[in-house]
Amino acid sequence: MEREPKKFSSPEPIKASDSDAKFPKEVAKLAGTDLNACLTCMSCSGGCPMYQYMDYGPHGIMRLVVLGLKKEALTSNTIWRCLGCHTCAAVCPMAINIASVMDYLRQECLAEKLPVGDKPLWEFHRCMMNTINRHGRVHKLELMVEHKIRNLGQGPQAWLQDGPLGTKMLLMGKLHLLASNVMSTGKAQVRKILAAAPWKNY
């Protein structure tokens, strides 16, 4: 993947009419954190392992949210390229839970059925939820196979990627062939939990 140039210099000035005043309050409430505390010190982007591949980076997303630019924030690829490693939340001097803001934005993007910023990564999340839905636990082999099938459109390089290494690990016994399952009553409970989330209807 190429390193992403940052979209900071907007050709058009930001208009007050583009801004959704309710958005920052909503995010702050559901992510359980105070966005106005942000100093724009960029500690989050400094710590972020994916910063060079993102279009805004975590501090850019924090600005977009505070300015109420909902569409820009929800369609950016930053929210999907976030790996959820919580480095931003751990280093933030103002104790803002940035990882939780990212989580909320992803859910909002799916709930509003907006185009996702990074399709393969979203498909990975979907495959992960599907395997939890089936077994109650994650089955790595199934997850990888399903991800391959869902990404057939990405071209031949993606089909063969990691094939030999994956087969080797399977033969070594590092990946189990069979899934570990939750009992049937538990599965019903897990499915009920998952069905309530917006990813299901995207």
């Binding site: 559901l30 790996l83 959820g84 939780s100 990212m102 989580d103 909320y104 992803r106 859910q107 799916l110 990975f124 999340h125 992960m128 939820m129 939890i132 109650g136 636990r137 994650v138 939750v182 009992m183 538990g186 409970q189 897990v190 939990i193 998952l194 309530a196 989330a197 917006p198 990813w199």
Partner: peptide, 21 residues
């Protein structure tokens, strides 16, 4: 009879999902 904690996707796909799991 434990279940998956949501791994890296549970919290990203739904706040209630991760909490309930």
């Amino acid at each position: 009879d434990w279940n998956c904690c949501g791994s890296s996707s549970g919290h990203a796909m739904g706040h209630e999902v991760a909490t309930s799991l």
